[in-house]
Design a binder for these strands. Sequence first.
DNA 1: CTGTATCCAGGAGGATACTG
DNA 2: CAGTATCCTCCTGGATACAG
Lengths: 137, 137
Amino acid sequence: MFLGNNDVIEDDGAPPAEREACTVLEALNRISGKWAIGILLNLSHGPVRFTELERAIPGISRRMLTLTLRNLERDGLIERTVYATVPPKVEYRGTEMADELYTSLKGLTAWAERHRDAIARSRDSYDREQAAGAGDL
Amino acid sequence: MFLGNNDVIEDDGAPPAEREACTVLEALNRISGKWAIGILLNLSHGPVRFTELERAIPGISRRMLTLTLRNLERDGLIERTVYATVPPKVEYRGTEMADELYTSLKGLTAWAERHRDAIARSRDSYDREQAAGAGDL
DNA sequence: CTGTATCCAGGAGGATACTG
DNA sequence: CAGTATCCTCCTGGATACAG
């Protein structure tokens, strides 16, 4: 269906880096995919309806919005509430777990901001070197 | 080529959640892909050679090892040193930036460990409900 | 040893018509 | 409104032969 990295390595004899990578990967798998973070962030301020999300997240397709919401719900990161009205109304809200995730993500965000320029420079120089080398062929 | 999420949204009028998601995504894009974290972790203890990595990371193909190494190098997360010997010897080592990333990742790892069981339970119950619902068709 | 080039399969994700 | 079903495309990643 989606995000198929459930092959958890259970070998306790594996090198430490192995087991650690495995744990980080578990976390990353919940928030991987093109839209999960955007959705989570939009839900962090309170309950939001389906169509509101669709409008709040430019470029997302109805299909991916549904799929990502379902997966986040399955992992217990969001809750879905259906109001039996006409027309139907469905609200999504982040769980406590999602809030904690959001907090843990702060460190990563800070890292990205801190090194944004350095990374951009690194890429530029790398690409220039590649281009220069290619010219010699 | 690989990891094509360079479409940074530059609209300063975008909602805050939008810009924040963008920043986190930047970070995630450096470490996305199936092997980046595993490689980074293996390099966190000191310089490692190509073949050592290949053996240390079970299941990785030569192609993906090379591709991932190149991308990490391009982003300035690892450094590549070639020794002009016969046979050739190449060493990879993580940069200071990678160390900081590793530190930032700790929070995420902790989150994953803290909620591993809750997530597993959530998935199980979700899947059971789905199966039950499907039985009604 | 350290890659590169090529071919191939599977799945993530896009577009969109249809439905309760 | 809030999805679901369907079709299609492209990219990630696997396998592996070849090369400096």
